[in-house]
Design a protein around this nucleic acid. Sequence first.
DNA 1: CCGATAATGGGACTCAGTATCATTTATAAA
DNA 2: TTTATAAATGATACTGAGTCCCATTATCGG
Lengths: 152, 152
Amino acid sequence: MTRIDTEWVEKATTELHASGRRAGGARAEVITQLSRETCAVTAEQLERTLADENRRVGRASIYRALEALAHVGLVQRVDLGETGSRWERIGANGHDHHHHLLCSACGQLVPFEDQRLETALQHLAANKEFTVDSHEVTLHGRCASCAAKQAA
Amino acid sequence: MTRIDTEWVEKATTELHASGRRAGGARAEVITQLSRETCAVTAEQLERTLADENRRVGRASIYRALEALAHVGLVQRVDLGETGSRWERIGANGHDHHHHLLCSACGQLVPFEDQRLETALQHLAANKEFTVDSHEVTLHGRCASCAAKQAA
DNA sequence: CCGATAATGGGACTCAGTATCATTTATAAA
DNA sequence: TTTATAAATGATACTGAGTCCCATTATCGG
């Protein structure tokens, strides 16, 4: 478990308040927990982690919090062809835009960044007739350690 | 509804037979129907279309057929953050690799291709430590007609 | 402090997808 | 052609993520 990202927690709190919402304990717990996660997690993982630390939050409130955060652009929904969606915070500073590799061997989710890919996506958006708000890239394959094992 | 892609239907039939499976009416209907679809469809859409044409196939058989086809690389599962997955055939000639834009205004699914994007993905796969088997790119935004309406 | 109204949580509910199992059918061998 | 084996099928029960509903609690502007 990582340290709480205070900057993001504050930004989330401020943004939600600015969008006309009231503060609440359940949402505060979800925000804090999301700020501690390093990659996309499922709603169930959030629920369990909070429960394990005696910070139990109703399931409906977890989904409501995720929806609210996604609505103001602070959380991103990630779908990887698994059962259930994952969710992850989008950086307070906008510096941690990344994509994912899902390892078919061990199931691990590996985040990565690639500038050339981002550039290609920008050009693409500029040249097509449609308007692009966001994008998502998912790679399926084997993570570094599983790929090494296979080679051996 | 598009014309049946005979080439793909034959390839699918052959490949499944080669992988040691027996032929069956339900799977044949699913294969034929997939060959007529121009972009990714949900299992429910397949089920309904077949039922509407008096070619009713059990739901379990639809999922089994999709799984078998995906296993031999002739069908691809596509997840777009909606409820439920979509499935689409992968070209018999390998020429129709594409990605998707999901229109947030009208819900339409728009396929697109982009060579620069593919090149970037190839370079990326070559430079990271992990092994990439396949990739998926999803854009969220507005399709050409909805983007035009908004501008007006 | 109060009142309007949003947030919360528990539980019922929905719906995509899976598992089970009895029956039908494809296919290889005799 | 007949038969035996095992796969394919479909009806239905089941699972689990996510939603809906509603009574209760809490926020916060006035």
